[in-house]
Amino acid sequence: MTTARPLSILLVDDHRDGADTLDMLLRLRGYETRVVYTPSAALAAAVEKMPDVLISDIGMPQLDGCELAQRIARLTGATPLMIAVTGYSQFRERCRLAGFDHFFLKPADPAEIVAALEAHAEKLESPEAERPQARSAEFASAH
């Protein structure tokens, strides 16, 4: 990890095994993580403390990841780096339109997720740490 302050990450996935194992990996890498299993818990966690990064599943009951991202932005007035990790390849375009910065189809290579986090940490450390407005231009996807 390159940042002085560890990135804070909010991780939401209704598939607990996937969420817990990714949580363990990110903690081992030195990131500060919070893991939740429902979109409503993610919403509450984001309002309580805005994370630097949201890693979200997309196909979840009650509220999908795209809607969750938009609600977080509406409620908090801020947007973290948003990473979609989903089992549905059909969601790629929808995620881009919802403002996600990265799209990973499960099973995602953890190294690729970490690379996206490190790139973001470097951006935050740079003097102009504002997030670019043209988000769609930097939408990246894997698999």
Binding site: H15, D17, G18, M24, L28, V85, G87, L105, P107
Partner: peptide, 24 residues
């Protein structure tokens, strides 16, 4: 079919993460 592929991918995600953990 879509649900089956999705469930398979979910299980695979955990497996890939576990692989990284045992590698570490």
């Amino acid at each position: 079919l879509a649900s089956l592929a999705h469930q398979l991918r979910n299980a695979l995600a955990a497996m890939a993460n576990n692989l990284e953990l045992i590698r570490l």
